[in-house]
Design a protein around this nucleic acid. Structure first.
Length: 573
DNA sequence: ACGCTCGCATCAGGTGGGAAACGG
DNA sequence: CCGTTTCCCACCTGATGCGAGCGT
């Protein structure tokens, strides 16, 4: 991480007064002006990631873009630019709106997506790790399989946090991220070796403060931060087949503010409190000996998901975020006010005898109806019995089709960032975060984890059920690595994606519904931010009343139906 | 007798809350 | 003084080990 230090000058160059009176860019999501400010600012700040349009768009604003394809040429950083990544950088996870049309889905329509390596979208500081070989890398070739597609598995949850401005606790000993980063990758050469790692870079040149119920900038960011900013996935290096076989989870990644903690740098990323960061995923092809290839043919690709931005804090500032953490993080279950009523109800009241008794069970149950599975799996793959994973950082192997959701749903669930999609026009909306697509598919994911008895999960689920990798990836990539490619192509193709969207839209439930659950079952804190949109009547539709009969849920209910049932479970006394 | 599954207990570690400590 | 950071606490998850029960 060289670029990171001593370059504060870049900050002020583009932005008028980052340190002036506290503003409220935070609002990046809600304030149109903020967006423009960012963009404007970003143009000059080459070292920060300034999500162009994304930054000003509200996650809640439906936007037509599920994919943010970059043309190979456009994704590369030019040596002269501040960006040090020669790799292609893909901005991803923009959701396709309900009205997503086939034409928009086509790759050609997204080519103009942001080129993070240039102008406004540069990220700071750029990754220079791995021997700084990246700086010498040449552009990825355009051959088949050379362009990876990355899907943020738990995007719905990220979006949920993002709308409130995600906060991540940093401690001296290191604190895990929640939500944690979990990706599905496609498009890699199955036989080649890759290193996969996450880098966390400053998202903007500002120092942030939570004031008046919202995040506002307050001065310039401390650009002199030191310490590790990269977390290499423990399974690196590994083959493309390996990476594509299952989710790539970074659940063990820890964030710390302890610069002196060098002994565990490999597992911790050093950040500064009250600074905004943007995680980036890097996939670097390496020689078979595991060494990153610095030859001219080296290929490295970078992906970033705007919704994974977060502000590092030593203590939560926004109670909405706190509540979201408590609601969704199983380790924080003890802080759920209504935990008793929610989770200690008689077994019969809570769920059916089926394996779905627990969240995990839910995840593993082989059924296409579990369109909401992804979230659970995505966030807690590590919590599942070890034998179900390749390793602790892994999610479920994508090897069992029978256990995966139906393809159509799966398609809609995945958000790839790929460089394979080319050409086309990019629309101003292409980078916006759209919750719509996920609402239907992942609303369940917004529910708190941990429902069902622990015992049930441990013994019954773990031992008797065939394991299903995350629903989505499986569906999308198919369990077979062989099928990965074809499916991906289908997704990217003009027809597949759209149709799946169309199919899923009707069943889509607002993510806010999950929120409604929260508000209904456990709304116990108020945020100074005022009422959140999640509580809007419109968003509160059916989940509150739905009756989650695990049996119905697990056996026949269509996704929407199943979800309703699923939600009802929580609301039932 | 052996192997397998299940139930339970134990332990390490993760979680946010809250008070105390720290620092500008 | 006020905002931020640190530390400890109770609670929870997940992994593991042990023994009981059962079938072969």
């Amino acid at each position: 991480m060289l670029g990171g230090e001593g370059e504060s000058s870049t900050f002020s160059s583009s932005k008028d007064a980052p340190d002036e009176r506290c503003k409220s860019p935070a609002v990046d999501e809600d304030d149109p002006a903020a967006g423009s400010r960012y963009t404007e600012h970003g143009m000059g700040a080459e070292r920060y990631y300034i999500p162009p349009t994304v930054s000003k768009q509200s996650p809640e604003t439906p936007n037509p873009c599920s994919f943010i394809p970059y043309t190979p040429s456009g994704t590369v950083y030019s040596p002269s630019s501040a960006g040090r990544y020669p790799s292609s950088l893909h901005l991803g996870s923009v959701l396709p709106p309900a009205g997503f049309s086939p034409s928009t889905a086509g790759r050609s329509h997204f080519s103009s997506a942001y080129q993070l390596g240039q102008g406004p979208s540069c990220i700071y500081p750029p990754y220079t790790g791995s021997g700084s070989t990246l700086s010498n890398m040449s552009l990825p070739t355009s051959g088949p399989g050379m362009r990876a597609q990355v899907y943020l598995c738990n995007r719905p949850l990220w979006l949920k946090f993002h709308r409130h401005q995600t906060e991540m606790i940093i401690t001296k000993q290191g604190r895990r991220m929640f939500p944690f980063l979990s990706f599905s990758i496609a498009g890699l050469n199955m036989t080649k070796q890759y290193n996969v790692f996450v880098e966390v870079v400053l998202a903007d040149p500002n120092h942030w403060r939570f004031q008046g119920g919202k995040w506002v900038t307050c001065g310039k960011a401390d650009n002199s931060s030191q310490g590790n900013k990269v977390y290499i996935h423990p399974e690196s290096p590994n083959t493309g087949t390996h990476w594509m076989r299952q989710e790539i989870s970074f659940s063990k990644l820890k964030l710390t503010n302890n610069k002196g903690n060098s002994h565990s740098t490999s597992q911790m990323i050093v950040l500064q409190s009250l600074h905004k960061y943007q995680p980036r995923l890097h996939i670097v092809e390496v020689a078979e000996d595991g060494v990153e290839d610095i030859s001219s043919d080296v290929k490295t690709q970078s992906f970033l998901f705007p919704e994974t931005q977060f502000i590092a804090v030593t203590a939560y500032q926004n109670t909405d975020i706190t509540q979201l953490k408590i609601d969704h993080n199983p380790f924080a279950k003890g802080f759920r006010d209504n935990y008793d009523s929610m989770y200690t109800a008689p077994e019969n009241d809570r769920l059916t005898p089926s394996p779905t008794a627990s969240p995990r069970a839910h995840q593993i149950v082989p059924s296409a109806r579990y369109t909401m599975q992804p979230l659970f799996q995505d966030q807690f793959v590590n919590n599942l019995p070890q034998h179900r994973f390749y390793n602790s950082e892994r999610a479920v192997p994508q090897t069992n089709n029978l256990l995966s959701p139906q393809p159509e749903d799966a398609t809609s669930q995945r958000w790839f960032v790929t460089s394979m999609q080319q050409g086309g026009n990019s629309t101003s909306t292409s980078n916006k975060l759209d919750l719509t697509p996920y609402e239907g598919e992942y609303s369940s994911s917004l529910l708190p984890y941990g429902w069902g008895s622990r015992a049930a999960y441990q013994r019954k689920v773990t031992h008797s059920l065939p394991w299903s990798p995350r629903p989505s990836p499986t569906a999308i990539f198919s369990e077979d690595s062989n099928k990965v490619k074809p499916q991906i192509e289908e997704v990217n193709g003009s027809g597949g994606l759209i149709s799946s969207w169309t199919d899923t839209q009707p069943a889509a439930l607002s993510i806010d519904k999950a929120d409604s659950y929260s508000s209904t079952c456990k709304r116990r804190r108020l945020t100074i931010n005022g009422p959140s949109t999640e509580d809007s009547p419109a968003d509160i539709k059916c989940e509150d009343s739905a009756a989650p009969n695990s049996s119905s849920y697990s056996k026949e209910a269509p996704s929407s139906k199943g979800m309703a049932a699923y939600y009802s479970f929580y609301t039932n006394p």
